[in-house]
């Protein structure tokens, strides 16, 4: 691979990209239906929620944190929005999106304050929030779905909307969800790469002491990361509700694993400071295409989880082994070359 492409992709991203291509090739060999426009679009539509959430998780992982409350936050927005849609036949999608983002912003803020201001370990703070939210939601919904019949008809139509769709061809056109995902990814990319805010988060993740020394407020940056993630979840929740045209309070149980998995597969390090939007997109695609490939190869959904879990374990292990190796080979003493003495 030429240096230019390598630079463009970054080392980590390049290897994820190669693996992604390999996965797609293998999937195509097993079932040629894989590499068709409609299948790819369906996979992307189905994983847009994962993709949008992974943008939020990326920010949190960049700060060295983790978010175990993805499920609670997503479900909260789905249920509140779903109830509003069902009870008032409310279908103003813009308002619904704003509402979802506002709720997510609030729950994210709670996480951020617990982590940044109270110094709670991120895993505990977010597990705690998840427990409170899910406890309440289970009580409130009693596990009951809000189904398509109860929702305003426009919601389902929005979920089915495709751009450039040819009514004569089934599955043609670009799904709305894909476009939304691309927009969110671009926005996150812009923030992380073009805005001082994003660069500050990257800097802080790499060296917290250094960031504070050049006058950045680490507490506020951390809080912002959790808030941004919450807003992403809110956005994803509305998108998901439209796409599914229903609300299932149990839909997101264990979903945080997928989200963290996509970010980690994309090359982000749990210690913070390392990770990119491009990598996370590739990680999500890898995740989605492996699952879809397995489905098309008629491997059961249960096996898919096992394989994906194993892949994530191996990916992080590989990173650790590499890191330990580098550490071991690090130069600690500047040994004088023998010639220098002879001279």
């Amino acid at each position: 691979m030429s240096d230019k492409i390598k630079r463009a992709l970054g080392n980590k991203e390049a290897s994820v990209f190669i693996i992604l291509i390999a996965v797609m090739l293998i999937a195509t060999i097993f079932n040629p239906a894989f590499l068709t426009f409609s299948n790819i679009m369906d996979v992307l539509k189905g994983n847009a929620t994962l993709g949008i959430c992974s943008m939020g998780m990326l920010l949190i992982i960049l700060t060295g944190g983790i978010d175990a409350s993805v499920c609670g936050q997503l479900t909260l927005v789905c249920v509140i929005a779903g109830k509003i849609m069902a009870n008032f036949q409310f279908d103003n999608i813009i308002v619904l999106y704003l509402l979802g983002i506002a709720i997510g912003c609030f729950t994210g803020l709670l996480n951020g304050l617990m982590v940044a201001r109270l110094d709670l370990p991120p895993i505990i703070a977010t597990l705690g929030l998840d427990s409170v939210l899910m406890g309440y939601l289970k009580y409130y919904t009693n596990g009951n779905w809000i189904n398509a019949k109860e929702l305003p008809p426009r919601i389902g139509q929005i979920g089915l909307f495709r751009f450039f769709s040819n009514p004569e061809v089934n599955g043609s056109g670009v799904p709305l969800q894909l476009l939304l995902y691309v927009l969110v990814a671009l926005l996150t990319w812009f923030m992380l790469n073009r805005m001082l805010l994003g660069r500050s988060i990257m800097a802080m993740g790499g060296s917290r002491v250094g960031a504070e020394r050049i006058g950045l407020n680490a507490k506020n940056l951390t809080t912002f990361a959790y808030m941004y993630a919450g807003m992403m979840y809110g956005f994803a929740a509305i998108t998901y509700t439209c796409a599914m045209n229903s609300v299932d309070p149990n839909a997101f149980l264990g979903f945080e694993m997928n989200v963290i998995g996509a970010v980690v597969l994309g090359g982000a390090l749990m210690t913070g400071g390392q990770g990119s939007v491009l990598g996370t997109v590739l990680g999500m695609l890898l995740f989605a295409f492996i699952k879809n490939g397995l489905t098309l190869a008629h491997i059961s959904a249960y096996w898919q989880n096992i394989i994906v879990g194993a892949i994530i374990l191996l990916a992080v292990s590989f990173d650790m082994i590499k890191l330990h190796r580098e550490e071991r080979l690090q130069t600690k003493v500047d040994i004088e070359p023998k010639e220098a003495i002879a001279r």
């Binding site: 073009r194 001082l196 805010l197 660069r199 500050s200 800097a203 790499g206 006058g215 400071g273």
Partner: peptide, 25 residues
């Protein structure tokens, strides 16, 4: 106080951006 995960140019000129209060880098 260098940032290992940022680029060379940012390490050199990042604090200038902060001082100038640039929102967009």
């Amino acid at each position: 106080s260098l940032f290992p995960t940022l680029t060379v140019k940012e390490n050199i000129a990042f604090s200038e951006q902060i001082d100038k209060k640039r929102r967009i880098v």
